[in-house]
Design a protein around this nucleic acid. Structure first.
Lengths: 213, 213
DNA sequence: AATTCATTCAAACGATTGTTTGATACGATC
DNA sequence: GATCGTATCAAACAATCGTTTGAATGAATT
């Protein structure tokens, strides 16, 4: 019997899930290939090495997510112009940045976003460099949009605010179960739209209010 | 020659530094013991296992940091009462929570805080449980203090806000070099007091402003 | 001086790691 | 129908992992 999906894709899926669950070092080639129903040598054949596999796992999801971010940002800017307003609201810009990330966590690539947040604090420097490259354009575009939304803010302030925002985002995606634990079940991430709005409200207020102080 | 510090402490120092740099799996017993100038078997003799060593590395720093947090919180509440005010400001409470963490990152345990932030997204479940236990009292005390500072806020909102705050904090401590990279040197963490005030301003505004929306 | 105890040491343990090899099977191309 | 390139396979590779062992060390106690 021939599986519906080619081996290469099954390897990526298995790797994504197992990396998210056990970390990059915790998931071995044997568990990955076994989970994918492939031979042990399959990863080295299709990707060359485990390191290259990790890069491919990221490349497969990162590009679409950042494309979605830029599209949403374009939509926000366009709608702003149609209304005759000269600048977008910080909330709209931030929502365009945050929504694709949380949305990606909702659908097929749910495990992936745990993974990307984990990579942010990963000890693999090459992985960090890879992520920085993938985010370069997004950082520039959203930096400019935020500068437009908050004209009185210093560029330095905006960078810091975005940094805090990314931190809150990553921590939310990865460790909401920890919050559920600490809040004794009061806070959960079942309603992801509500989580998004909470996050948007928080960072938008932080950005607007944290400047003049 | 007898080293100034006993082997046990040298092992903890080396482990703390190497765990922060290479991760828990990336730092091996051999590199740790070699860095500490001890025999390979030293860790198993003094701590029993690598896992127990990790727990000890955390226990050594976590307790003092959380004690400092609670002391600062007591000081804030006391000063508030002396002024005749019935509630503290959110900023003061948040500063009491954030300052010991950033301060710990400044002095001797600088590597440690990279480590604790990394542990937050670690794939080792026993480590997460350990951290949750250590933070239980701090969470309760600061939860109550924030409820006092923001009486109109729902308990659920406060939990989420604290969650975002911890995320921004961890990401700041661990990945400020990433921010420096993206901002092309504009943002650095050389002035840690300034970083603290930025962070306090951001999360305080997020907490106050993010609620009524 | 003899003994006890904590510590350090070199050496090896079995297990697991990522990777490589050479053979085998399958389909398309000539 | 022979040939070529892709893909999968079992098997072994060298390296490293955390841990254990048993002897050697040295200071403190009896």
């Amino acid at each position: 019997m021939t599986p519906a999906q080619p081996t290469r894709d099954r390897l990526l899926d298995a790797a994504e899930r197992l990396f998210a669950e056990h970390g990059f070092d915790g998931a071995s080639m044997r568990t990955i290939t076994a989970d994918a129903g492939a031979n042990l040598a399959a990863v080295n054949y299709h990707f060359g090495s485990k390191s290259a596999l990790i890069h491919e796992v990221f490349g497969r999801r990162l590009a679409p997510m950042n494309v979605a971010r830029l599209q949403l940002l374009d939509a926000v800017l366009e709608e702003t112009a149609q209304r005759g307003e000269d600048r977008p609201t910080p909330r709209a810009v931030l929502r365009a940045f945050l929504a694709p990330a949380l949305s990606l966590g909702r659908q097929e690539g749910r495990e992936f976003f745990v993974l990307i947040a984990r990579a942010h604090s990963s000890p693999h420097p090459e992985l960090q460099a890879h992520i920085v490259n993938q985010f370069a354009e997004v950082a520039v575009r959203f930096g400019a949009a935020l500068q437009l939304a908050l004209p009185s803010a210093a560029r330095e302030d905006l960078f810091w605010s975005m940094h805090f925002t990314v931190g809150a985002l990553c921590h939310t995606v990865v460790n909401t179960q920890l919050l559920t634990l600490m809040s004794e079940g009061l806070c959960t991430d079942v309603d992801e739209d509500a989580v998004l709005e909470r996050l948007v409200a928080f960072v938008a207020a932080g950005m607007e209010g944290g400047l003049d102080s």
